[in-house]
């Protein structure tokens, strides 16, 4: 294809997105669109999968059967989210094995939040409330993104997320209404998760490289800072409602802007965790690699069985 032909294809393509038409897997797309989507969708899928690890830590120690089945169901949902997203990503012409390889080699990123440890039962509350809460804010606009398979996966994901946040908040609420030690435990979890959750919404706008392009392709509808503000505004009253304190001395309501003001975030810490120096980066990746490597014989055995069955059927047919 000549450069001029590509140029005109690109114009048709961009116009299509501007008209809110979806792009489907076999449609022509600029290479950059394909690569950006592979990167973002796979990062998203990896986050869902790695995100099961900090919560999996508490399944056997959940305080009641009710809490245990809810936590199990939530974690199973996250596995499902990972699969919807891997499946969407594969439609762009990359294989599941390549995607896993990128995660396991450290080439691909996943959300940094999952590199923090879950130290007490209250962390299951804080994670559901704040981490899933921030994820929902990130994800809802993606239901209208331009790539069809991604948008459809996100619709499914968003439908399931609200239970996650509600079960988390209810854990916090119950602890906050409990003994002084239980309330203390809830407050401690909020203290540790608050700032990492705010950072989940991404670097500040001036440090974010992808925003303009992402807006055009509807991978983003609002900037990171707008999303963060939305998260703070909706979460502060929720904390107040259950008598917990947001761990930010600079937090204050601005009656003119009708928004909360809050402290500058520690972006140095954020980038350290992204670069692999968070408290649990190594543990998380090791867990993923071990699961994949130790499961290899199972995958091979299942495939060998399937092939044997197929040969048997062929023979019978003859």
């Amino acid at each position: 294809m000549s450069e001029k032909e590509i140029k005109s294809l690109e114009e048709i393509f961009e116009a299509k997105i501007a008209r809110d038409e979806k792009i489907e897997p076999k449609d022509w797309m600029p290479e950059k669109y394909r690569q950006t989507h592979i990167r973002q969708i796979s990062q998203h899928a990896h986050s869902e999968i790695v995100g099961m690890l900090p919560e999996g830590n508490w399944i056997t120690r959940a305080p009641s059967l009710k809490r245990k089945v809810a936590l199990l169901a939530k974690i199973q949902d996250e596995a499902g989210h990972g699969l919807y997203l891997y499946s969407a990503c594969e439609t762009l012409g990359i294989s599941r094995d390549e995607l896993y390889e990128q995660l396991h080699s450290g080439k691909a990123k996943y959300s940094s939040i999952f590199n923090y440890p879950t130290l007490t039962w209250a962390d299951m509350g804080a994670v559901g409330w704040l981490v899933d809460g921030a994820a929902i804010i990130n994800q809802v606009p993606l239901c209208a993104t331009s790539y069809g398979p991604y948008a459809r996966a996100m619709v499914r994901v968003c439908k399931e997320e609200s239970f996650h946040q509600r079960q988390g908040f209810q854990i916090m609420m119950t602890l906050a209404e409990g003994t002084p030690e239980q309330k203390e435990m809830a407050q401690d979890a909020l203290n540790r998760w608050w700032f990492p959750a705010l950072m989940m919404l991404g670097p500040t706008d001036d440090a974010s490289v992808h925003t303009a392009q992402s807006m055009k392709w509807k991978l983003k509808r609002k900037t990171n800072d707008e999303l963060r503000q939305q998260f703070v505004d909706q979460t502060v009253p929720q904390a107040e409602m259950i008598g917990l304190t947001i761990p930010d001395p600079n937090l204050k309501w601005n009656p003119e802007t009708k928004h909360y003001e809050f402290s500058e975030l520690d972006w140095e810490e954020f980038w350290q965790v992204v670069k692999g120096h968070g408290p649990c980066n190594k543990m998380r990746l090791d867990a993923r690699r071990n699961a994949w490597n130790n499961g290899e014989w199972v995958r091979n055995a299942a495939m060998a069985y399937a092939e044997k069955q197929e040969n048997r059927e062929v023979k019978q047919a003859i």
Binding site: L83, S87, A153, Y305, A306
Partner: peptide, 11 residues
């Protein structure tokens, strides 16, 4: 509604 990997139809 989507796709998945499996060794055979039953799985």
């Amino acid at each position: 509604c989507g796709s998945l990997h499996a060794s055979d139809a039953t799985m």
